[in-house]
């Protein structure tokens, strides 16, 4: 893997945006450091997804500055895989620039093994369970030259146990293939377990009401002190 420290950079500076009369973001500033996992938590409808869309470039904010360097890929809540492509073909999407076919195939099979989907390379997404599909998504965004991963509630469509399993999976994958991650969720447990830094958002227009640094080592168990402490703080911040 090439060194990416110089390339990736993600920053919002006093970004404001509104849909019609509704102001969604107001003077929001955010810097995401290289290799960091930043989790945005907040009640639904507070503008979390809008922030991701601004970061990805899908939405151009009405005012403010967006700095974005490096290859950015998004994992959506569900149905982001192309149903007409097999697991292997979906993963290979990000490897089209690799000239050498043999290298590309090896990389695809490495990624399939990495997410524990050996033997499913020729399956189509509709033949897999929800959890397996999200694992294919993880393999796909990790393929090739990606620097920054934006995750829009990627596990929220899964059942609780798969969700917990997928968090551990994500941490393991990021240890093997480090990336800068911005993760949006309404699940405070998820936030406390995954994040290097949690941003608690509140209200509309979205403002960062508190920022929590978590320096406990990964992987963290749900019952670790650091996780429980963080959850307490987030709950308090959200007034729950």
């Amino acid at each position: 893997m090439k060194d990416k420290s110089a390339v990736c950079r993600l920053q919002l500076e006093r970004v404001s945006h509104s849909f019609g009369q509704v102001s969604v973001l107001h003077e929001l500033s955010l810097v995401v450091n290289h290799g960091e996992v930043v989790v945005l938590v907040g009640p639904s409808g507070c503008g979390k997804s809008t922030i991701l869309n601004v970061l990805s470039g899908d939405i151009t904010p009405l005012s403010g500055l967006v700095r974005r360097e490096g290859v950015i890929r998004t994992i959506h809540q569900q149905d982001g895989l192309f149903p007409w492509l097999t697991v292997s073909e979906n993963i290979a999407m990000g490897l089209r620039s690799m000239e050498n076919t043999a290298h590309r195939e090896r990389e695809v099979s490495d990624l399939i093994n990495l997410v524990h989907l050996e033997g499913f390379g020729h399956h189509y997404p509709h033949q897999l369970s929800g959890g397996m599909r999200q694992r294919v998504e993880l393999a796909r965004v990790l393929a090739g030259d990606s620097d920054i991963l934006l995750m829009d509630e990627p596990f929220s469509a899964l059942d609780y146990q798969s969700r917990v399993r997928m968090r551990r999976e994500l941490i393991r994958l990021l240890q093997l293939r480090p990336r800068t991650v911005v993760f949006v969720t309404h699940d405070i447990e998820e936030a406390a377990q995954l994040a290097d830094r949690v941003m608690v958002l509140s209200g509309r227009p979205a403002t960062i009401s508190c920022e929590l640094l978590i320096d406990a080592a990964h992987p963290r168990d749900l019952t670790d002190n650091a996780v429980i402490e963080t959850m307490k703080k987030i709950l308090k911040e959200l007034g729950l």
Binding site: T74, G80, F82, M93
Partner: peptide
């Protein structure tokens, strides 16, 4: 066509 496919296509 669901817009998500075009957003993914743009990513890649």
């Amino acid at each position: 066509i669901p817009s998500i496919y075009f957003r993914v296509a743009q990513d890649y």
